[in-house]
């Protein structure tokens, strides 16, 4: 479903991705962990060419793009294979909730308005926002905005959904509602790549975990392998540092 070969990317001569190889199968849910600045966001953005890699091959669904020869048309069709959920939601501020979800269907999938509306209403129901159709993004809480973002991505029925820290801009009490929506759609067999700092969520939702540091994938494995028996020192250090931040009651609850 996703195939990356030797993806390299630098910003101002500073290498950020140093040769990423990755395969993700259909229906697989992959979580990407790693310290700040390790290149997680950049990797995700290379998957839909929001950042253009300097080198390598990107394939999503059945569209393959060789970076060096990428044409506008290829990039457009690559982008139409995936959908993205952004850290800061990036909803269209001048459009209502319903219009936000319909927009992609109408403009890029050429749906008739009534079909787009029906489909979008379905998606909004799925994320629990059936009563907010005519609200504008600025009238919603962060958690609600992010659920609109998820509905907008889902509506496109993409091969893959990319999530970049979907909950890290949210107040703690709003994180749960968003994670539970993501968990629900993960169970529907949609291929997903999720960058997250929510360790217990990553463990629960993913089939495979990648640990990135310094622009490379340091280690990958099942959640059990990565969280319980990391092989690499860097992974261990990272997980130790993160778990120290987790409040004690939470750990106790997990232990039971």
């Amino acid at each position: 479903m996703i195939y990356l070969k030797d993806i390299r990317k630098s910003f101002n001569q500073q290498p950020v991705l140093k040769g990423i190889n990755l395969k993700v199968g259909k229906g697989e849910v992959v979580a990407i962990l790693g310290p700040s600045g390790s290149g997680k966001t950049t990797l995700l953005r290379c998957l839909n060419f929001l950042d253009k890699p300097d080198e390598g091959i990107v394939q999503v669904g059945d569209v393959q793009v060789k970076t060096k020869k990428a044409t506008k048309r290829e990039i457009l069709s690559l982008r139409r294979q995936s959908a993205m959920v952004f850290q800061h939601y990036n909803l269209f501020a001048h459009k209502t909730v319903l219009e936000n979800v319909m927009e992609g269907l109408i403009v890029t999938k050429k749906y008739k308005k009534t079909d787009a509306k029906r489909e979008s209403e379905l998606m909004l129901k799925k994320v629990g926002l059936e009563d907010k159709h005519h609200h504008y993004p600025s009238q919603l809480s962060g958690g609600q905005q992010q659920r609109v973002g998820i509905a907008r991505a889902l509506a496109l029925n993409p091969q893959v959904i990319l999530f970049d820290e979907p909950t890290s801009a949210l107040d703690p009490e709003l994180v749960g509602e968003v994670l539970s929506v993501i968990k629900t759609i993960a169970q529907e067999g949609i291929t997903m790549v999720i960058v997250t700092h929510e360790m217990s969520f990553a463990r629960e939702v993913s089939d495979r975990v990648l640990f990135m540091d310094g622009g490379v994938i340091v280690e990958e494995g099942s959640p059990l392998e990565i969280f319980n028996a990391p092989k690499e020192e860097r992974t261990r250090q990272f997980l130790n540092r993160i778990s120290r931040d987790i409040p004690i009651p939470y750990l106790e609850e997990k232990a039971n």
């Binding site: 929001l50 506008k72 457009l76 990036n90 269209f92 403009v107 999938k109 496109l156």
Partner: peptide, 20 residues
């Protein structure tokens, strides 16, 4: 970010400029 969101739903430059 809204332009990027427009690209991510598959719009081209012209569409995202005009509509968003």
């Amino acid at each position: 970010g809204q332009t990027e969101a427009a690209y991510s739903v598959g719009m081209n430059n012209g569409q995202s400029f005009r509509r968003i």
